[in-house]
């Protein structure tokens, strides 16, 4: 039974991830008074892309050709380590969030060098900005995880998620609120959403993630879209685990709460995208440093209390 649950988890994660960007786009359309794209549009896009041929730039090398499948593979593996529902993922050990973050960092590294491989200034611009944002976003993430680890006393993702409960919220509400805020900002940054990057426009000033994949085509581009949907799922799970703690020990109920938590996270990301404008590029490090201060405040307040 356990193995069936694990298998089901893996299948749900790998196949349900592209709904999240669809939810975000629908929320944006709602704010714009339109009906908007289909919720399942990303599936159709990926399917369409997989049926096309590829054009490679003749400046690129082998790295460009292996980057897209490698990114998708790494993101899938990282997603399988994340807990699902009340269960642990495929693996659970102390410090597994470090492995998750660094697997995502490896996929970012491959994306950056494949962008520079094309020899175009646009993509170099996106690569340089992506590298810069990661420098400021990673410490925020680690600080929030440190605080969570301190509150719950556990050091693995599954351990932390299983200790989060409504009781913990009652005791530690402000600290958890601060952590949710900083993790939400990290999620928006790493998945290139407003206010860090605009996933809809294709102008040089407003894109970071989109510009790096300009020269990918066909199945490569489909795999990259898929990888970014999975990244959104992974980072969104952190937020959803805190805002919707679940403990009923029933697999179906827990999974439903988990998925609805992810949907809430996606809806809030959509609301933020509709309401806020993109922060000026020069101010993005300050914004992330603000998130870092929030995370530090959470940690210090938690230590003051305990």
């Amino acid at each position: 039974m356990e193995n069936i649950k694990l298998f089901l988890q893996a299948v749900i994660i790998l196949f349900a991830a592209p709904i999240l960007p669809g939810i975000i786009n629908r929320v944006k359309a709602f704010f714009g008074g339109r009906q908007g794209r289909n919720i399942f549009q990303l599936y159709f896009d990926i399917y369409k892309l997989f049926n096309k041929g590829i054009v490679y730039s003749n400046t690129t090398t082998l790295i460009f050709r292996i980057a897209a499948p490698a990114m998708a593979a790494l993101s899938c593996i990282a997603a399988l380590i994340m807990p699902f529902g009340g269960q642990s993922g495929l693996l659970s050990f102390s410090g597994d969030f470090i492995l998750i973050v660094y697997l995502l960092a490896l996929s970012r590294f491959l994306l950056i060098i494949s962008a520079m491989d094309t020899g175009s200034p646009f993509e170099g611009m996106g690569a340089s900005r992506e590298a810069q944002f990661a420098v400021f976003a990673e410490p925020v993430f680690f600080m929030s995880i440190l605080t969570l680890s301190k509150i719950t006393g556990e050091s693995s993702v599954h351990g932390i998620f299983s200790k989060l409960s409504p009781v913990l919220w009652v005791e530690n509400a402000p600290v958890l609120f601060l952590i949710v805020l900083s993790l939400f900002i990290v999620m928006l940054c790493e998945t290139s959403r407003v206010p860090f990057d605009d996933p809809d426009t294709h102008l040089e000033l407003t894109m970071i993630h989109e510009v790096m994949v300009l020269d990918n085509s066909g199945p490569d581009l489909g795999l990259i879209f898929y990888a970014s949907a999975i990244k959104l799922w992974i980072l969104g799970s952190f937020v959803s685990a805190i805002i919707m703690p679940r403990h009923s020990e029933i697999f179906w109920l827990d999974s439903l709460i988990y998925i609805s938590g992810l949907a809430i996270v996606a809806i809030s990301a959509g609301v933020v995208e509709s309401v806020m404008a993109r922060v000026r590029l020069l101010r993005v490090p300050q914004f992330l440093l603000a998130a870092f201060s929030v995370a530090i405040m959470a940690f210090v307040f938690q230590s003051l209390k305990g």
Binding site: Q286, A290, S293
Partner: peptide, 12 residues
């Protein structure tokens, strides 16, 4: 930005 942020942390 640098000065205000570092002063803010110091104050904290």
């Amino acid at each position: 930005g640098h000065i205000s942020w570092s002063m803010y942390l110091l104050i904290f």
